[in-house]
């Protein structure tokens, strides 16, 4: 089992290396074969906030299409966009904000597939006695928000502007999951994360909703990439995410329909 996994990992690395060197050369895909016979690996680059749902969707997709393997690269959308533009062999990109999708050059037409709203996450029992968004201006509280580069950070900035406060964070995290981790470990009194993140960690954190969150709703676009090593697989995965089954998984996790 281990050997097989190791071999698969090696094969993936080799495939990535080859694809990386190949640059513009399209990967060997034979359009003559029927579209139902998908094969190979689909590399999906997805925003950190999609970690739980997309992992699930990937498994479901593999079950529907035996012979296809979906691998994920989760991270801050800005970092992912950067990696794709630097030639990372991605087939699909799902960003947590349109801006980071716009940054990617060679892509198909993006489709917005979900919406996500910010929520305050506090450790179980709310030890910092956080009551609302205004507490983010309190110097005496330990607070984490996302760095301005990542979508959740950009959304946080919009919220703070709407509320009219100057945030006093102790840390600017590199992606939303890092901010959530700081809450679930109890290291901060509160962090501004997505509603879906609060739900995904509901045994460790509590969520506090606030009305101004409507001022910064993030639309999530998904697109296939023009230089995708596996274009058929890429399109199939995007279709699957947009399908009713995909929507079911996403809304169950707290995402809103676009």
């Amino acid at each position: 089992m281990f050997r097989r996994t190791a071999f698969a990992a090696l094969a993936t690395v080799a495939a990535l290396a080859v694809a990386g060197c190949g640059g513009d050369t399209p990967a060997a895909s034979s359009p003559s074969t029927s579209s139902s016979a998908l094969s190979g690996t689909v590399n999906v680059f997805a925003a950190a906030s999609l970690t739980g749902t997309f992992t699930q969707l990937g498994k479901d997709f593999e079950a529907v299409h035996p012979g296809v393997k979906v691998t994920f690269n989760f991270g801050g959308s800005s970092a992912l966009a950067q990696q794709i533009n630097s030639g990372a062999p991605a087939d699909v990109f799902a960003s947590a904000a349109p801006k980071n999708m716009d940054d990617v050059k060679d892509k198909g037409t993006p489709t917005n597939f979900v919406k996500n709203t910010l929520e305050i996450a506090v450790p179980k029992g709310n030890p910092g006695k956080i009551t609302g968004i205004k507490d983010f201006a309190d110097k005496n509280k330990k607070l984490a928000i996302c760095a301005a580069q990542v979508p959740c950070g950009a959304a946080a900035a919009k919220v703070f502007a709407a509320v009219g406060i100057t945030a006093q964070p102790d840390s600017l995290e590199q992606d939303v999951k890092a901010a959530l981790t700081k809450v679930s470990l109890g290291e901060v009194d509160a962090a501004l994360v997505y509603k879906t993140d609060v739900l995904s960690a509901k045994d460790k954190v509590e969520g506090i909703e606030f009305p101004e969150s409507s001022k910064a709703v993030n639309e999530y676009p998904i697109a296939t990439l023009t230089k995708a090593p596996n274009p058929d697989g890429a399109q199939a995965f995007v279709d699957y995410v947009l399908s009713d089954k995909g929507k079911m998984v996403l809304t169950a996790a707290g995402f809103d329909a676009p």
């Binding site: 964070p169 102790d170 840390s171 890092a178």
Partner: peptide, 27 residues
Amino acid sequence: TITFAGNFPGRTTTMPLAVYLALETDP
């Protein structure tokens, strides 16, 4: 560093952290 000390300019943002975050917006 980024895991334990977080990231805040002037307090915990050392050069490697600054490089990492700059890479995302302005390589």
